[in-house]
Design a protein around this nucleic acid. Structure first.
Lengths: 238, 238
DNA sequence: CTCCCCAAAAATGAATTCATTTTTAAACTG
DNA sequence: CAGTTTAAAAATGAATTCATTTTTGGGGAG
């Protein structure tokens, strides 16, 4: 039922039965939840102890995360979580908006009745969580709906690319949701429009709505960053 | 001078002084040149011998290539180069065209005089190589020009995303160029139009031209695939 | 002759070990 | 006492080693 909640964002699925695959999931989660602060050095030993594995699979996982842009590897100086400054965030959103708008356009013409019903169902469940102000559940379904639109576009490359970039935003988006609950109602309204337009199969309008939805999200995140870095001296990185 | 020739397509630059970084370059080149045929198993030992390294850095490099989609890793069963079938190729082009069209739109408004002159210079050098029918040099400058447009868009995320996807096409594009020289003239004409439109700073028109340019490239590659897999029984993979 | 089963060989996944680089911290100098 | 130098400690990069899985090839049953 709530299987969408535990879904992991990943462009290319790693083998399930391997340690480095499991490590990828865990490290992603740690980064997204903020357990690994951006910018600070991440000692391999510590992570090895935490996950009870040797350095070999851990280092493989770090290489993959680096290839995805979630961490940066400095030669002989370890890995650190990528810090997202405002400029990079805007760049990320510029591309993500492009991809999701195109996905909406494609989805409007390609989506089938079953997938449409599925999205509708998720939408109403999300609405219920919104009414009860249950943020984690709302957040998960929100992501699931956007994913479903990407699925409906029926272009695996488009989806994988989107997932890879969206994964880099997960942490920022979650923080913004926590910091700016007053924007919640507006986001919910936008989702109502998005669903209606998808049902109407108006691809161009849907593309515009999704792009605007993301632009709003971006502004919220930017405001949230500026808020949280108010007292700190010139450290507006996330 | 001809530094563009040796340029490597890579979304996130790997550390230079490390073995696994150098291995990434070498493996990419081998894949793009067809030294590693798609679909067949790639024994680690063989590659270790070839590059005179142990399996540790090699396996790290393979994990990264897998994350990028250039190879697939089957648990306990090794790595193999990803085979691009027609459907995946179309999906790739759909996304790449989207990205490059947007890059063109952005570049038209953001590019500076110096960068524009640089592109013009590359264009004329490319034309010279076209006249002399020097495919490798033409090919390298062609890529460099498309890269320069991405640079001019001034969005590092857009460029990195584009580079990652374009890298997966390098092999196919090179093969198509070899197989279909008669299309060369048309591609050259299209580049003339693209340059003129960039100089005129007509973003919308440039976006359309680039999308069309890529659509034509896609058709050439598809035709080339169908040609080369004529006799073979249902093996239209690249 | 074909198919199936099983043992030997080879390949992969991961831990350990070794070498080099970086970090640290204390001692020394001015 | 501040700043520099340097030696010890720690961390990273890579090779080696070990365990498990898969592949392969031969022998036997039908």
């Amino acid at each position: 039922m709530n299987s969408a909640v535990s879904k992991v964002i990943r462009a290319f699925p790693a083998p399930e039965g391997t340690l480095h695959g499991a490590l990828l999931d865990n490290l992603r989660q740690m980064i997204n939840q903020g357990d690994l602060a951006p910018g600070i050095r991440v000692p391999e030993r510590m992570l090895c102890q935490k996950f009870s594995v040797s350095r070999t699979p851990l280092r493989e996982a770090l290489k993959v995360l680096a290839a995805e842009g979630l961490v940066v590897l400095l030669p002989n100086r370890g890995a650190r979580v990528t810090a997202l400054d405002e400029a990079q965030l805007c760049h990320l959103f510029e591309v993500i908006a492009l991809l999701e708008a195109e996905a909406g356009r494609l989805a409007a013409s390609r989506i089938g009745a079953a997938a449409l019903a599925e999205i509708q169902g998720m939408h109403y469940r999300m609405y219920a969580h919104f009414l009860r102000q249950e943020l984690p559940e709302y957040f998960a379904l929100n992501q699931a709906i956007h994913e479903a639109i990407l699925d409906a576009a029926e272009n695996p490359v488009l989806k994988a690319t989107y997932m890879g970039l969206a994964g880099r935003l997960t942490r920022a988006r979650y923080l913004a949701n926590q910091n700016q609950p007053e924007r919640w109602q507006q986001a919910m309204d936008e989702h109502e429009m998005i669903l209606a337009t998808l049902i109407a199969r108006d691809g161009d309008k849907l593309a515009k709505l999704l792009a605007q939805h993301l632009a709003n999200k971006r502004d919220i995140i930017l405001k949230s960053i500026r808020m949280s870095s108010e007292g700190e001296a010139a450290a507006p990185a996330l």
